[in-house]
Amino acid sequence: MTTQLRIGTRGSPLALAQAHETRDRLSAAHPHLAAPGAIEIVVIKTTGDQILDRTLAEAGGKGLFTKELEDALLGDRVDLAVHSMKDVPTWLPDGLEISTLLPREDPRDAFFSRSGKGLDELEPGSVVGTAGLRRQAQVLERRPDLKVVPLRGNVQTRLKKLDAGEVDATLLALAGLRRLGLTDRITAILEPETMLPAVAQGAIGIEIRSADERTRALLAPLHCAETAARVTAERALLAALDGSCRTPIAALARLEGDTLVFETKVLSADGRQVFTAHRTGKAADAAALGADAGAEIKAQLPPDFFTP
């Protein structure tokens, strides 16, 4: 059978798991796509996958995980690209859009330590490895007596580095661990009060060419309106702050019926400066709520706060 749909993805185990979930949902929604060969998964190596010797902030930001996938979309080499939404830049290239959001996984962070101790119980001076400024800043906000060092690589690589004693502890997104079946090793799940998640953490977004109505129609049954409202609020915050992974920004929107409850926190890299905002409103006003919270925080920030 000839290929009817081409899914672009990074090649990490987690990225492939997300691409397979997308394929399986498409096949379930459209029986003609369930035939062998109807959907092709196209693995594309991104710049972010190749840079492992420094943090994403140092290497240039979130677009490192999406640019090559977007180039493939614009060049008609794939029909859709599957992303972890937390890796997607605030603004997309002309002609592309996120048309579909799958049901969001648990957005919380998971904590791992070799000693089996939680974040609050680690010995002073313990070394915590993490790839992101958001986690670094919140760890240091809570435990300024700890040392935080960069730790890059996919989930399995980071856990191997932990086992090898390169660090005493690390943090990973619970959503990815669940998708990979690796939750049995978790020391503790960190509640948002302890570690507020990254914007859109746990959400899978599907990017398409804006003019591709055929692919848009095929993906329509997969779209989750609840996830869309939550992610819309969180990404509106990023847009208001002009935020990237060079800035420790955390946010979480949740729905209680038709009410959206939104929390955000922006920190300095050392965790010493912390700015927060809270909003509650209608889910239909998600974008406005996120943008308004962003405006409140931006008004409090020192002029050079976002300067690398």
Rank of each mutant, 00 (worst) to 15 (best):
L16C: 15
E21S: 08
T22Y: 03
P31A: 08
L33V: 00
A34E: 07
E40I: 12
I44M: 04
T46C: 02
T47M: 11
D49M: 12
G61M: 08
G63P: 09
T66S: 15
K67M: 04
L69K: 00
L74N: 09
D79Q: 06
H83Q: 05
M85P: 00
D87W: 01
P93D: 11
I98K: 10
S99C: 06
E105T: 10
D106A: 11
D109Q: 09
A110S: 09
F111S: 06
F111Q: 07
K117V: 02
D120I: 02
E121P: 06
S126H: 13
V149R: 02
P150G: 14
G153S: 12
K160Y: 04
K161M: 13
A164Y: 14
G165C: 07
D168I: 02
L171G: 01
G176H: 10
G176R: 07
G181R: 10
G181D: 13
T183C: 06
A188E: 15
L190Q: 12
V199D: 03
R214V: 02
T215A: 10
L218P: 04
L219I: 08
T232A: 13
E234G: 01
R246M: 14
R254N: 11
L255E: 00
G257E: 05
D258I: 02
L260S: 11
V261F: 07
R272A: 12
Q273M: 15
H278C: 10
H278G: 12
T280H: 01
D285L: 04
A286N: 09
D292C: 13
I297E: 01
A299S: 14
T307C: 15
P308C: 00
